[in-house]
Simulated scan of single mutants.
Amino acid sequence: MDMSGSQRIEAPREKVWEGLNDPEILKQCIPGCEAIEMTSPTEMTAKAVLKIGPVKATFAGKVTLSDLDPPNGYTITGEGQGGVAGFAKGSASVRLEADGDEATILHYAAKADVGGKIAQLGARLIDGTAKKLAGDFFEKFGQAVAPKPVDENAPPEPEKKGWFGLKKS
């Protein structure tokens, strides 16, 4: 499976670069990520729970950063084992392009391969899930590195009400 795209992030390129190399930010942004730990400046271990169609599995694996060109980009390569569900491995080339002083365009080109039970689910389901996971990651990543400013003059959000007009907790 191949996937590529671009995402505009409302933060300077240096801040986006720092976020891409910060295990805590990555943990918040990677869908299903339970743990991520730097084992060296260019290697991490990670554990994530993913659901692809009817198959839910915990993947544990290793991530390696190469072709480092701070703050312009890198190549990220990973491989994870999901027990009886199978395996996933892939790589992505990430390039950061400044868009003025306060925004960055993140370009990516990714390749992935899966095997085992998850490979039997079919390319359409796997591709759709991969695109959704990528979209979720970029939305969360953009919020993590460039949180929206709080407008002090904005009216308070209305109270959320549940069934029968009862206040939701």
Rank of each mutant, 00 (worst) to 15 (best):
G80R: 00
G116E: 06
A123H: 14
A11D: 08
E97L: 11
H107S: 05
M3I: 14
S40P: 04
M38A: 14
P158D: 06
P31T: 07
S66T: 10
P147D: 05
G53R: 08
F59T: 07
A57G: 04
P12L: 10
A48P: 02
D22I: 05
S66L: 02
K62T: 12
A130H: 08
M3E: 14
A119V: 00
D151G: 08
L133N: 10
S66Y: 01
Q28I: 12
T64Q: 09
K161Y: 11
R95S: 05
V49D: 14
G61C: 03
G90C: 02
Q143D: 15
P158A: 09
E139R: 14
D151N: 15
F141N: 08
T45R: 15
P54G: 05
K167C: 09
G73M: 00
T75L: 04
L133S: 07
A112F: 13
E10I: 03
P23E: 09
E152P: 00
R13N: 03
K56N: 07
G82Y: 06
D67W: 00
Y108N: 01
F137I: 06
P41W: 09
M44W: 06
K161S: 07
T58Q: 11
K117I: 12
V145Y: 03
I30Y: 04
P71I: 00
G135T: 07
V145I: 07
I25R: 12
G90I: 00
V16A: 11
T45F: 03
F141C: 12
I118Y: 04
I36G: 13
K89A: 07
M1N: 13
K167A: 15
V49H: 12
Q120C: 03
E14K: 01
L20K: 08
Y74N: 02
K132A: 14
P156Q: 01
Q81W: 02
F141P: 06
G82V: 01
E24H: 10
A146C: 08
E18D: 15
R13L: 04
S40E: 09
G122I: 06
G32E: 09
G73K: 00
V145D: 01
S66H: 02
S93V: 10
I52K: 04
G128A: 10
V63T: 04
V150L: 14
E157D: 15
A109G: 09
I126H: 06
V114A: 01
S6V: 12
K140A: 15
L26T: 12
T77E: 10
M1D: 15
F87P: 09
R95E: 09
K117T: 13
W163Q: 13
A110P: 11
K148C: 04
M44R: 11
I36R: 14
L50I: 13
A46Y: 07
E10H: 14
K62G: 00
N72I: 01
A98L: 01
K62A: 00
M3L: 15
V84G: 03
P23G: 12
P31I: 05
A130Y: 03
N21A: 09
T104S: 05
E79N: 09
K117E: 04
G162Y: 10
D67S: 06
T39R: 14
T39C: 05
F141Q: 06
P54T: 00
P41T: 14
E139H: 13
G115E: 08
F164H: 11
Q7R: 15
S169C: 05
I36Y: 04
A154F: 05
I52C: 03
V84K: 06
A88Q: 02
L65M: 05
N153W: 14
D99T: 02
M44S: 13
A88C: 09
